[in-house]
Amino acid sequence: MTGTLLNLDLEVLRASWRESTEAPDDPGPERPWVPPDPALARSVRTIAVAVLGRTLEVLDGRRPRIQLSGAVTEAVFGQITVLLQHGAFGQQSNGHQSNGPDGCARLHRVHVQFRSVAAAEVFGTLECGNRVRALAGRLERRRVRVSAPGALPRRVADRWVLTEFTIL
């Protein structure tokens, strides 16, 4: 991912959202909801695909868990750790992968529904071998540490972070 997608200007996001959700001064008929800027929607969807894809790779064992740091909250990180410890995703009781011939879960469809200027719900489907499963989550715009642990000075930035995640 390039830094430009992850480091969207928060003021631009707020301005775009205000324009689409401000209440009229006149309490007349309700204004229809106007979606956020298409460029913003595309970039948040791109981020959602990247974070969800990385999460599936961790659950499949194709990527180490630590690569999710900064992209998911501690609660989601803990949830993924528990799933890995119990072999709840992609592992059979004999330790072999059960997600198909190459052992990979693949993201199939991803949809994003904005809830506010700094929150979006994500949902979609993934393919595990010959099965199709649903997934859902929530992305929120949060301040996260972007410098390496122990590095000084500590740098923080606003990023979209996966705050909730589930596979059905």
Results as ranks from 00 to 15, higher is better:
residue 1 M to D: 13
residue 1 M to Q: 09
residue 4 T to F: 15
residue 5 L to A: 11
residue 6 L to P: 00
residue 6 L to V: 10
residue 9 D to M: 04
residue 10 L to D: 15
residue 11 E to Q: 13
residue 12 V to T: 09
residue 13 L to R: 10
residue 15 A to H: 11
residue 17 W to R: 07
residue 18 R to S: 09
residue 19 E to N: 08
residue 20 S to L: 04
residue 20 S to C: 14
residue 20 S to R: 12
residue 21 T to G: 06
residue 24 P to C: 04
residue 24 P to G: 09
residue 27 P to I: 06
residue 28 G to E: 11
residue 30 E to Q: 10
residue 30 E to L: 10
residue 33 W to D: 13
residue 38 P to R: 02
residue 39 A to F: 09
residue 39 A to C: 02
residue 42 R to K: 07
residue 42 R to E: 10
residue 42 R to A: 12
residue 43 S to F: 12
residue 44 V to D: 03
residue 44 V to H: 01
residue 44 V to W: 01
residue 46 T to R: 13
residue 46 T to E: 15
residue 51 V to A: 05
residue 52 L to H: 14
residue 53 G to R: 03
residue 54 R to T: 11
residue 54 R to I: 02
residue 55 T to K: 04
residue 55 T to L: 15
residue 56 L to R: 01
residue 57 E to R: 15
residue 60 D to I: 06
residue 61 G to K: 04
residue 61 G to C: 07
residue 62 R to E: 10
residue 62 R to C: 08
residue 62 R to F: 14
residue 62 R to N: 12
residue 63 R to M: 12
residue 65 R to L: 14
residue 67 Q to D: 15
residue 69 S to W: 09
residue 71 A to N: 01
residue 72 V to E: 03
residue 74 E to Q: 12
residue 75 A to V: 14
residue 77 F to R: 08
residue 77 F to N: 09
residue 81 T to I: 02
residue 81 T to W: 03
residue 82 V to S: 10
residue 83 L to I: 11
residue 84 L to T: 06
residue 85 Q to F: 08
residue 87 G to L: 03
residue 88 A to D: 09
residue 88 A to H: 07
residue 89 F to T: 07
residue 90 G to W: 01
residue 90 G to L: 05
residue 90 G to P: 02
residue 91 Q to T: 09
residue 91 Q to W: 07
residue 93 S to F: 14
residue 96 H to I: 06
residue 97 Q to T: 13
residue 98 S to A: 15
residue 98 S to W: 11
residue 100 G to S: 01
residue 100 G to H: 03
residue 102 D to F: 07
residue 103 G to M: 00
residue 106 R to E: 14
residue 107 L to V: 08
residue 108 H to S: 12
residue 109 R to P: 00
residue 109 R to M: 04
residue 111 H to W: 07
residue 112 V to M: 02
residue 113 Q to G: 04
residue 113 Q to L: 04
residue 115 R to I: 04
residue 116 S to P: 00
residue 117 V to C: 04
residue 118 A to V: 07
residue 119 A to D: 12
residue 121 E to M: 06
residue 125 T to N: 02
residue 128 C to P: 00
residue 130 N to V: 12
residue 130 N to H: 14
residue 131 R to E: 04
residue 131 R to Q: 08
residue 132 V to K: 07
residue 133 R to P: 02
residue 133 R to C: 12
residue 133 R to K: 13
residue 133 R to V: 06
residue 134 A to L: 12
residue 136 A to P: 00
residue 136 A to K: 03
residue 138 R to P: 00
residue 139 L to M: 00
residue 141 R to I: 03
residue 141 R to N: 04
residue 141 R to G: 01
residue 144 V to C: 03
residue 145 R to T: 13
residue 149 P to F: 01
residue 149 P to L: 05
residue 153 P to R: 03
residue 153 P to Y: 02
residue 155 R to A: 08
residue 156 V to G: 05
residue 163 T to S: 14
residue 164 E to D: 15
residue 165 F to S: 05
residue 165 F to A: 08
residue 166 T to K: 05
residue 166 T to D: 10
residue 168 L to K: 11
